[in-house]
């Protein structure tokens, strides 16, 4: 009994360290896309390990914890992808270190057909206001 508690505790502790890393990444990274990168990856593995630790210590909870882990694996990348796409469409300013943006070219090509022009103006005004 005690040995499963300790094993589960160690796994949970390593998971919580990954959660802390994800939070640090969200604060330290210079632009939105890099924040999403750090935020999704570290928190996915962190939560998986955290819940796995509880599952080791409390075997009767395994089915529901398994369901929770599967749900997080499937939904976490989807929500980060939706956030990244809407960030790019609204024209969030990217970090100065950014090398190249292939997606910007294709959206400019389609720009004349849609309201893209207006949106980009609004986004430009917004990012000017957001700078400090």
């Amino acid at each position: 009994m005690e040995i499963t508690m300790i094993a589960g505790g160690v796994v949970s502790l390593s998971g919580s360290l990954f959660l802390l890393l994800g939070a640090l990444g969200v604060v330290r990274m210079p632009d939105l896309f890099n924040r999403i990168q750090a935020g999704t990856k570290a928190t996915t593995l962190g939560t998986m390990l955290f819940l796995a630790g509880i599952a080791i210590a409390e075997p009767s909870w395994i089915p529901k914890l398994l369901l929770l882990i599967l749900f997080i694996i499937f939904t976490n990348p989807v929500s980060s992808h939706v956030l990244a796409r809407s960030a790019h469409h609204t024209g969030i300013r990217m970090s100065d270190k950014t090398v190249v943006d292939h997606l910007a070219k294709t959206t400019e090509q389609r720009g004349s057909e849609s309201l893209q022009g207006d949106e980009q103006e609004i986004a430009a005004a917004k990012s000017k206001g957001g700078e400090r």
Partner: peptide, 14 residues
């Protein structure tokens, strides 16, 4: 001992 580890990880998550 095991409980302490879980408490510590809860605190780190906090």
């Amino acid at each position: 001992m095991g409980n302490m580890l879980f408490l510590a990880s809860a605190l780190i998550a906090l």
